[in-house]
Design a protein around this nucleic acid. Sequence first.
DNA 1: AATGGATCCAACCGCAGTTGC
DNA 2: GGCAACTGCGGTTGGATCCAT
Length: 266
Amino acid sequence: MGRTPCCDRAAVKRGPWSPEEDEALRSYVQRHGSGGNWIAMPKKAGLKRCGKSCRLRWLNYLRPDIRHGGFTDQEDAVIISLYTQLGSKWSLIASQMEGRTDNDVKNYWNTKLKKRLLAAAATDAAAAAAVSIPRRSRPPPAVAVPRPPPTTATLTTSLFPALAIPTVKTETYTCDDFLAPTPAPAPAGDPFAAADGSATSASAASSASNWSSADTVAAGEAEASFFLLDFCAAGSHDLGAAAGQLQQQLPGGYYYHALDPSLSLV
DNA sequence: AATGGATCCAACCGCAGTTGC
DNA sequence: GGCAACTGCGGTTGGATCCAT
């Protein structure tokens, strides 16, 4: 037995909204709210629309606080970061971005960001092949550091200081945190897979990360890891400086990190 | 100017979770 | 506890627009 339809499809209008319908919906919601009942609302507002359609139109288009298009680089970074940590939880991601809807973020990811990541991953792979660097084959760092036990601490970063993201990391980072995980085979159909068939950091960004640090997502895969490894090996524990240098050395990449300079490597 | 492919994004669909009876 | 109604969400679709040829 199928699910009861939310409305009579034959009796409701579908497709693009007219300016008159928009105005009717806007004025009704602004005067009365949705009344906690989107199903009953269209009739009260004089609209021949399904309640779900009204709700979607209001949330995604008519709400006064919505911004459309023109995503900034900072917003790109936030989306990539949150996508890596949360996966396709578009509503959750959008809730951390002022004036953005889940639909907007989802569309932006699917039409632009994902392609940008794909292109960057391809460039990355070509560059790595050109210099014949054995990826993830370096010896372990000389610095032996104890890893703090995982917690559910709130992660505070410079880009979204008040964002409470469940994370398995404490706020103390170790050099180990900047190592890419053991290369896993890419899932079937992974567009970001490396030439050898292993998953890349972009794979992770596209399907929820398995990186050990929530803040080094998609960090240019091994290049970023190696850089931070060297940084640690050189004896520096200044995470803020590491982030800055990494950004300079791998410009225009798809990596993202919002390392809080107040944090430090141990 | 015509056309066909690519891109964008609003809107729809169906499922899962929540709520109230 | 069971059921139906409702809400919220993520995936997908299709029409409009853009752009290259």
